[in-house]
Design a protein around this nucleic acid. Sequence first.
DNA 1: ATTAAAAGTAAAACAAGTTTTACATATAGA
DNA 2: TCTATATGTAAAACTTGTTTTACTTTTAAT
Lengths: 66, 66
Amino acid sequence: MKNNIKVQRAIHDMTQADLAEKIGVSRQTINAMEKNKYVPSTLLALKIAKLFKIPVEDIFILENSD
Amino acid sequence: MKNNIKVQRAIHDMTQADLAEKIGVSRQTINAMEKNKYVPSTLLALKIAKLFKIPVEDIFILENSD
DNA sequence: ATTAAAAGTAAAACAAGTTTTACATATAGA
DNA sequence: TCTATATGTAAAACTTGTTTTACTTTTAAT
């Protein structure tokens, strides 16, 4: 699974810290997600999608390996 | 956060075990999700949404308390 | 070149998701 | 009523997500 969080942040001109604060997680959580260190919870995915006003599927993309 | 998994299973005439097997988790994981015992990973959410051919947001719904 | 802000990284601790095994309860059909 | 299938539940073990603290590196602007 990959994700577009970095791009969406750029579009919305947000730092990792900004995004972290908006959705109520630590900055390291955002950083680790962007670096594909781990798969976030559905709660985080929904909050991020809501914030960026796009579907979860447009941010988090399933890959063949999943 | 709540979810419609039970309804979607009914629409697709699947048991908890069926769904579990299709997306590669244990039956207890499906049961626990339906009973709101915990929030699944985004990977699971995407797989379930793909299987039912509807958006993640139509299955997992944010609530005010989230 | 220096500085400030942003991003990357790492380890320990803690919280939460998932599996496994096992049993109890419910439901529908024979 | 008996039986098979589906669902609910629980505890232990394991895996993974998340936080906290703290430090390093990068980037962009001065």
